[in-house]
Write a protein that binds this DNA or RNA. Structure first.
Lengths: 123, 123
DNA sequence: TGAATATTTGAATGATTGTTCAATTGAATG
DNA sequence: CATTCAATTGAACAATCATTCAAATATTCA
């Protein structure tokens, strides 16, 4: 991501629909809120992480299990689990040497369902 | 993203819960479906694009308007509009020199709402 | 046709990110 | 206490991506 360098095109001086621009600008949420939201969707925006979420929506699993299902190294899986944990989409529970992961959100499933609906209809 | 080089940790030989692994593996969706889904969430996974979607959820707008609201160049906005168009989240309508954009999906709003719900509760 | 303006496009660049590899941590067990 | 194994972590590298800048399209209007 780059910084805002205020290099605006001619459009800035020639606002086409000043009323709409004012009205919408007033309703825009603050940047922090938007950034948090973007962070959340980033967690969904990767095949590996989506597979992990899908697997966990079926069953609680340990890191080894997930690695076996995805046919990936447990290191790679662990790195992605951290992202999902930070987004608070999953929770972990240690039992001896083994760490079990499970979905930690009612929204995960519904966000996934809405996504699937969209790509099904947008054919 | 890197290729799958089949470099699996020791976990591959020592599957901890073979039953679960088999059961979940059988239910996993195919890679193409997962990739499509990841593409969709990528469209939401950026502050600029989220702002555009939020703005369009309030009103239909032309590129200049969006650029003014986000205080960005219309070039940058146009590049991001292309991503949203390819994900079929928005649609465009040309009227003379001006191109108007609008949300093109009932799911956009509900996916955004679910996301907001999540970050509100995950405090 | 030629000027003006909204939008798009392509190349370049700096930043971010997913995976690998090697090393480390944490817990059980002999 | 040393060993074993599951899991995590940090650095490095390649790939992806968002923005900028310059140039090209598309449309209106004189």
């Amino acid at each position: 991501m780059k910084k805002d360098t205020n290099n605006l095109n001619q459009c800035e001086t020639t606002i086409i629909h000043e009323e709409d621009v004012k009205r919408v600008s007033a309703k825009m949420p603050d940047d922090e809120h938007i950034r948090d939201l973007a962070e959340l969707y980033k967690a969904f925006a990767d095949s590996t992480r989506l597979k992990i979420l899908t697997a966990l929506s079926i069953s609680e699993l340990c890191v080894c299990d997930i690695a076996a299902i995805l046919e990936m190294s447990s290191s790679a899986v662990s790195h992605q689990l951290r992202v999902l944990r930070q987004a608070k989409l999953i929770r972990d529970r240690r039992e001896g040497k083994v760490v079990y992961y499970a979905l930690d959100d009612n929204h995960v499933t519904s966000i996934l369902l809405q996504g699937k609906e969209h790509i099904r209809e947008a054919k």
